[in-house]
């Protein structure tokens, strides 16, 4: 009995060990392939040639000289993105709640806003804010106009996320709150929203990551000195557009890698807190 038991135990240990080795091998394989792909990418910009095939020659001196200038736009990019996402979250929540309203004007306002924003390109919207608002006598700084455009745009898209999150909270929750005598407002604030928000956080993280890159579109107006604007400025001035854009790309990529890492940590934390 004892031996059977212990051999059964070691059998299980063996299976676990095999499983672990498989997982480790998989991770190693993925890591190695990433490394190779990265090396190929770097090689493509090395200026070296294989036979008659030429890779891209970069002006490394220009890159060294302008690294700090372009990188200096990171702060502005993050600043615009954070302000915009905060505005977008507020608008998205209000719009999602508006979609639940039985009062026609509120419902109409929500659907009209979402339809208008989703029906036109973001690039166009950003220009529109720069060109139209001054005609109405509203003069905003480049950053503020950019934040307004990005926030309004993402707010429309994120309202669908919020709507899904709100409807993910079961009907029974609302009924339990109602049976306790809660008003619709109390039910929303105490029961529905806390559950819906937790559901909405991971997709909002995704939206924030895409927004950090869409904020590049704001540079088109020439008033927000973020990554993209700086890259284009020095690139054009010294005829090193490719180098400048490449550096901007690296900044964007590293930034999103970091944000993606933070996002996965947040998701893991939320999953653990799931009860």
């Amino acid at each position: 009995m004892d031996t059977a038991n212990s051999s059964g135990q070691s059998q299980a240990d063996l299976l676990v060990a095999v499983q672990k080795r498989k997982q480790a091998n998989f991770r190693m394989g993925v890591g190695a392939t990433w490394g190779i792909l990265l090396l190929i990418l770097i090689f493509l910009f090395s200026g070296k040639s294989i036979g008659s095939y030429q890779t891209i020659q970069l002006n490394t001196e220009f890159m060294r000289n302008n690294l700090a200038f372009i990188g200096g736009g990171l702060g502005q990019t993050l600043f615009v993105s954070i302000l915009s996402i905060l505005l977008a979250m507020l608008l998205a929540l209000l719009t999602a709640l508006g979609r639940l309203s039985t009062f026609p004007p509120i419902f109409a306002l929500s659907t009209f806003y979402v339809s208008l924003i989703r029906g036109t390109p973001l690039y166009l919207q950003i220009f529109f804010f720069f060109l139209a608002l001054p005609q109405l006598g509203i003069i905003l700084s480049g950053v503020l106009a950019g934040v307004l455009a990005l926030g309004l745009n993402y707010g429309a898209y994120m309202s669908e996320t919020f709507r899904a999150a709100l409807s993910s909270v079961g009907k029974g929750q609302r009924e339990a709150a109602t049976a306790l005598g809660m008003t619709p407002l109390q039910t929303m604030r105490r029961v529905i929203l806390p559950q819906a928000l937790r559901f909405a956080i991971p997709p909002m993280g995704n939206d924030f990551i895409s927004m950090t890159k869409d904020s590049a579109l704001v540079s088109a107006t020439g008033f927000v000195h973020e990554l993209m604007w700086r890259a284009q400025k020095v690139g054009r001035a010294q005829f090193n557009n490719l180098e400048a854009l490449l550096m901007a790309a690296m900044f964007y990529w590293v930034m999103t890698l970091l944000l993606t890492f933070l996002q996965s940590r947040l998701e893991a934390y939320l999953a653990k807190g799931d009860r």
Binding site: Q173, E175, Q195
Partner: peptide
């Protein structure tokens, strides 16, 4: 009291 309990999970 409901069939599905409907406790507040949060």
């Amino acid at each position: 009291v409901f069939q599905e309990f409907n406790l507040f999970p949060h």
